[in-house]
């Protein structure tokens, strides 16, 4: 059996790649993908811990997470579409009509 620490290192690495993507990418779609990586890092944890703890709660919760990630992307793509229509670009740094 693979020790639980390996799973945690893997999920932490995936999470950090996601955070890195959010901090460096300017394309809104890349941003969505990075968020997806972070959510899936949590899913790795949930499934691994579920196996470790011997109950199914974590696995079921990871299904919830996937469904909600899909719903979030659906709303997000809609917003990115109107972003493109208004600003002719999906660059998140272009939308600056209000000052920060």
């Amino acid at each position: 059996m693979v020790p639980i620490e390996y799973y945690m290192v893997l999920s932490a690495a995936v999470f950090c790649i996601g955070v890195f993507g959010i901090l460096t990418r300017r394309n809104a779609l890349m941003f969505l993908m990075s968020v997806e990586l972070m959510l899936n890092a949590a899913n790795i944890n949930l499934v691994a811990f579920s196996f470790q703890n011997g109950n199914l709660t974590g696995q079921v919760f990871s299904l919830f997470t996937m469904a909600l990630a899909a719903a979030e992307v659906a709303v997000g793509i809609g917003i990115i579409l109107v972003l493109y229509r208004n600003f002719d670009d999906v660059d998140v740094t272009k939308a600056t009509t209000m000052r920060w």
């Binding site: 945690m8 972070m38 949590a42 944890n45 949930l46 811990f49």
Partner: peptide, 14 residues
């Protein structure tokens, strides 16, 4: 922030 939240939940669950 919801991704961060879920990751936190997964650690507490662990």
């Amino acid at each position: 922030s919801s991704a961060v939240f879920v990751y936190g939940i997964s650690l507490v669950y662990g």
